[in-house]
Amino acid sequence: MTSPTLYFDDIEIGDDIGPIERAVTHPQALDFIAVWTGDDRPTRFSDRDTAVSEGLAGPIVPGIMTMAFISSLLTEWAPGGKLAMLDVVFRQVVLHDVQHTLSGIVTDKADDRPEIQCDVFLQDPQGTRLIIGKAALELPAKGDL
């Protein structure tokens, strides 16, 4: 089933994006790392003992993989839209096999083009925001601006 197109004209500042729930399983992370690095040596991303030896609670999700999930939050919310910019701050690590919540909120609409700005968040089950950031999305418009 195809989601309906979301138009720039229908968006209001303050509109919520998501939330959606996502957990990166350990096998998913390993698959991603294999493609990303082509290297199967144990690292903090793939191996529990290595992660713990570096002071982490367990293996962590690569930052670029979490960015991919945040991207999907936006593109699934706005089919037909184009992600023009994503800029995030990694505040704390994201662990494997934990259900995280991804969400966003529309903070601005451009006056001269069909582009919106959003804040985006990835938070853990306790509500702590592990990743924060901002994004810009180009959306189809119904008419001329």
Binding site: I13, D119, K134
Partner: peptide, 19 residues
């Protein structure tokens, strides 16, 4: 480590007031 401009904060203050 911030991603917000002062102008955007001001605009958001307007959103909060309207709410």
């Amino acid at each position: 480590d911030s991603r917000a401009t002062v102008e955007q904060y001001v605009k958001w203050v307007g959103v909060l007031r309207r709410r």
